[in-house]
């Protein structure tokens, strides 16, 4: 069955909205690392053992896979509609068009690469070891060790900035694509989009900053 471009866009939007909820929840859980070692370890223990969380893991993976697969198909169709040989000789910046709106796919690739690195750094040393019957590494020690490396902090910051730009457009764009928008709500949704993106940026960046500067309460 060949899906129309709009069906693909709606699927990208719905999976994107699901991932936005996950991103916000993940942030709340991560911020406990700044507050207390005990809290963070308790959160990790809860995430590791709670049955509802375990059931949500494959749903989350599916959300990412669907979002990525449909976004890739969507992008290929758009490249075919405006191939390289049909680029304009003179291109100017169109007023009101954000940089993130024009670069969602590239930003998405950076986000995915960051997720792969994140899974390698945390998931493979914690949950995966649990599945394999090996001893899991301590989550808090992993955070401390990783953020003691300035190079990793820089890579992490680039990743979070890519997420910031991606969600800044993705948030309101998802509502637009599923039809939950009109001329009154467009500026409101774009404002909420910016607020959400800034919360994500400041929230996630505050963790390496606190650990690098030793501001965390351990």
């Amino acid at each position: 069955m060949i899906l129309s471009s709009l069906t693909k866009k709606i699927i990208i939007s719905l999976s994107g909205l699901f991932l936005l909820v996950f991103l916000a929840l993940h942030l709340v859980l991560n911020l406990t690392a700044i507050c207390s070692r005990e809290w963070y370890e308790a959160v990790c223990e809860f995430m590791d053992t709670n049955i509802a969380i375990k059931l949500m893991v494959p749903v989350l993976v599916l959300g990412f896979v669907i979002h990525l697969a449909f976004a890739t198909a969507f992008e290929f169709k758009n490249w075919a509609a405006r191939p390289r040989e049909l680029k304009y000789a003179v291109a100017t910046h169109t007023k009101g068009v954000s940089w993130s709106a024009k670069n969602m796919f590239v930003l998405g690739i950076v986000v995915i690469l960051g997720i792969v690195l994140h899974l390698f750094n945390f998931w493979s040393k914690m949950q995966l070891q649990g599945f394999l019957g090996n001893e899991e590494e301590n989550a808090y020690d992993l955070v401390v060790n990783l953020f003691s490396c300035k190079c990793f902090v820089l890579i992490y910051a680039i990743w979070i900035i890519a997420i910031f730009f991606h969600v800044q457009h993705g948030f309101w764009s998802a509502f637009q694509s599923i039809g939950l928008n009109n001329s009154k709500w467009l500026p409101r949704l774009q404002f909420l989009s910016k607020v959400y993106a800034w919360i994500i940026l400041i929230g996630y960046l505050s963790i390496p900053i606190c650990f690098t500067l030793g501001l965390q309460c351990s």
């Binding site: 709009l6 866009k9 075919a80 509609a81 954000s98 457009h169 637009q176």
Partner: peptide
């Protein structure tokens, strides 16, 4: 629109501008 080879909307707002 899809059949005729037009691309899909990514909400850049360039069209409106």
């Amino acid at each position: 629109m899809d059949e005729l080879g037009f691309g899909a909307c990514s909400n850049t707002q360039a069209c409106e501008a």
